[in-house]
Computed example of a mutant assay.
Amino acid sequence: MSRYRGPRLRIVRRLGELPGLSRKSPRKAYPPGQHGQSRKKRSEYGIRLEEKQKLRFNYGVTEKQLVRYVRKARRATGSTGQAILEMLEMRLDNTVFRMGMAGTIPAARQLVNHGHITVNGRVVDIASYQCRPGDVITARDRDRSRGLIKTNMEYPGLANLPSHLEFDKDTLVGKVNGIIEREWIALQINELLVVEYYSRMA
């Protein structure tokens, strides 16, 4: 299943607020489609599927990538659900978004893919690159890269910088100081339902 490139507000209407996908709010409060206003009782499977879809669309990953993160999280110590969220949050595209260099995760992914971001002095154009504590993330030292990021910073996505990151708006230099804590994850999600979804699918 490829990455979603359709109307974003349609997804927001169906799944609720997705801070990484869009900064806009839908005018209509009910899901899209001709049955959007009907109050249909959701099955347990439907609830778990919805939580999984929230994760997929907010972070802009494909189904295949998400399955890979789940498998990796199962091998890690501690809570599987928390490990999945940590891995997704520590992706380079999401870190660039959380530092305020882009208004949404898709915009941050584009910055990374087009070679506007450096990690520890080297250009990294892989959006799924896993940031580690100690990584220094900066705008590439080119007028075009710095100009794009400064324009993006006029319309930030999220107001608060998470405690594991630091960012200097004047020099456009950011640093990863640790792993994100659960309370700083902006997406409203029950990660245990995502783990359950994949355990039943396996």
Rank of each mutant, 00 (worst) to 15 (best):
M1T: 07
S2C: 15
P7K: 01
I11Y: 02
R13P: 01
R13S: 02
L15H: 06
L18R: 00
L18M: 04
P19V: 15
S22F: 05
R23L: 14
K24Y: 10
R27D: 06
K28D: 00
P32D: 10
G33I: 14
G33F: 11
H35G: 15
Q37N: 13
K41I: 13
S43C: 05
Y45I: 12
Y45H: 00
G46Q: 04
I47W: 00
L49W: 12
E50C: 03
K52N: 07
K54D: 00
K54Y: 02
L55M: 09
R56T: 14
R56G: 11
F57E: 00
Y59F: 13
E63G: 03
Q65H: 13
L66F: 01
V67W: 07
Y69G: 08
V70G: 15
K72C: 02
K72H: 04
A73N: 09
A73F: 03
R74T: 10
R74C: 04
A76S: 12
T77D: 13
S79L: 10
I84P: 12
I84W: 10
L85G: 06
L85H: 05
E86F: 15
M90Q: 09
M90W: 00
T95C: 13
F97E: 04
R98N: 01
R98I: 01
G100M: 08
G100F: 06
M101K: 08
G103C: 10
G103Q: 01
P106I: 05
R109K: 05
N113S: 14
H114A: 11
G115M: 14
H116D: 08
I117A: 05
T118P: 07
T118A: 10
N120T: 12
G121E: 04
R122N: 09
V123S: 01
S128K: 13
S128C: 11
Y129L: 15
C131E: 03
C131R: 05
R132W: 07
P133V: 13
D135E: 09
T138A: 15
T138E: 07
A139S: 12
A139V: 11
D143R: 15
R144E: 09
L148S: 07
I149P: 08
T151I: 14
T151P: 07
E154R: 13
Y155E: 03
P156G: 02
P156Q: 04
G157F: 03
L161S: 02
L161Q: 04
L161N: 02
L165E: 00
L165G: 03
E166C: 11
E166T: 13
F167S: 03
F167W: 03
F167N: 04
F167K: 04
K169R: 11
L172C: 07
K175P: 03
N177D: 06
N177T: 14
G178S: 09
I180K: 00
W184Y: 07
L187W: 12
N190G: 03
L192T: 10
Y198P: 14
Y198Q: 06
S199L: 09
M201C: 00
A202I: 14
